[in-house]
C-alpha cells in the first residue's frame, strides 16, 4: 500500500515537472520573437502568450518543489538542470523558424493545451485543478490567435500557403507526443488525476481537422509519433543551445539575485 502511494507521488512529481518544463520552454521560444515580430501587434501577442505560459510554468514548478519537499525553488529547476533532466515535449523546443513554423507549433500545442486543461481543472488533485482553472481562461486567447493565423496564412497567398504546408510537414512528426502517455502519466491517468489521453487524441484531431479545413490545408498523412522522448529526457539538439543561453547568468554567478 505504502509503495503504491510512493509510486503515485513520484509519478505526480515527474508529470508536474514535465508540464512545467513544456510551458517554460515554449514560453522561452516565443520570447525569442520579442522585438522581431512581423508587425508590432503580433510581436506583442507572442510576448503576451509567452508571459501567460511562464506564469503557468511557475505555478507548476512551485508545486513540483512542494511535492519534492527538498526545499528547492523554481530557479533550482530552471537554471541548474541539464537537458537530459528536462522533461518538456520535443515540439516545444523546436526552433521558431519562420512565422509559419511558430504558428503551426503553437496551433498544435494550443489545440492540446486547451482541452487538457479543461479536463484537468476538475482533477481530484486540488493544486493541479487550481493551476488548470487559472490557465484555461488564458489559453482560450492563445488558441484563437493560433487558429486565426493558420486560417489566414493557409487561405492566404500562394506563398503563405506553401510556407504553411512546409511547416505542417516539418512539425507533424512531433505532434503525437502530446498525447502519448509515459509510464508516469499512465499511473496518473489510472488514478483519475490526469485526463484520458485517448479521448484527448480524438478531440485534438477534430480540432486540427476543423481548422485546417477552414484554412484549405491538408492534414499531413504520415505518422505523428515519429519524434518522441522529450517527456523522458531524450531531446533534440536544439534544447541544449536554448538552455545554454537561458542559464548562462546563473551558471556564471550561481544564486545571483536582482
Amino acid at each position: 500500500m505504502e509503495t503504491a502511494k510512493n509510486k503515485t507521488n513520484q509519478a505526480l512529481f515527474n508529470v508536474v515537472l514535465s508540464l512545467a518544463d513544456s510551458t517554460l520552454i515554449l514560453s522561452h521560444r516565443l520570447s525569442e520573437w520579442c522585438g522581431y515580430g512581423p508587425v508590432i501587434e503580433q510581436d506583442i501577442a507572442m510576448s503576451n502568450i509567452a508571459l501567460d505560459l511562464i506564469g503557468e510554468a511557475r505555478n507548476f514548478y512551485d508545486y513540483a518543489a512542494k511535492l519534492e519537499g527538498a526545499g528547492k525553488t523554481e530557479d533550482d529547476y530552471v537554471y541548474f538542470r541539464e537537458s537530459k533532466d528536462y522533461k518538456n515535449l520535443l515540439l516545444c523546443e523546436q526552433l521558431n523558424g519562420d512565422f509559419a513554423h511558430t504558428v503551426v507549433r503553437q496551433f498544435f500545442f494550443d489545440s492540446w493545451h486547451i482541452h487538457f486543461l479543461d479536463v484537468l481543472r476538475n482533477s481530484p488533485d486540488e493544486t493541479l485543478a487550481a493551476i488548470a482553472g487559472k490557465s484555461f481562461m488564458e489559453v482560450s486567447y492563445h488558441i484563437k490567435w493560433s487558429s486565426e493565423w493558420v486560417i489566414r496564412l493557409g487561405d492566404g497567398t500562394e506563398k503563405s500557403k506553401q510556407k504553411m504546408e512546409t511547416a505542417l510537414e516539418a512539425l507533424w512528426p512531433f505532434s503525437g507526443e502530446l498525447m502519448e502517455a509515459t509510464e508516469d502519466e499512465k499511473i496518473l491517468i489510472a488514478a483519475g488525476i490526469l485526463p484520458n489521453f485517448e479521448q484527448l487524441k480524438t478531440i485534438w484531431m477534430e480540432q486540427i481537422m476543423s481548422v485546417l479545413t477552414r484554412a484549405t490545408l491538408e492534414v499531413p498523412t504520415g505518422k505523428n509519433t515519429v519524434q518522441t522522448g522529450g517527456k523522458t529526457g531524450r531531446h533534440t539538439e536544439y534544447l541544449s543551445y536554448l538552455l545554454a543561453e537561458m542559464q548562462s547568468v546563473q551558471r556564471a554567478y550561481p544564486g545571483l539575485k536582482w
Binding site: I44, A45, N48
Partner: peptide, 13 residues
Amino acid sequence: LLSQFGSTSCKAL
C-alpha cells in the same frame, strides 16, 4: 478589434 493582446495581459487593442 485590432488584436486580442495589448499592452498588458489583461487588455486587448
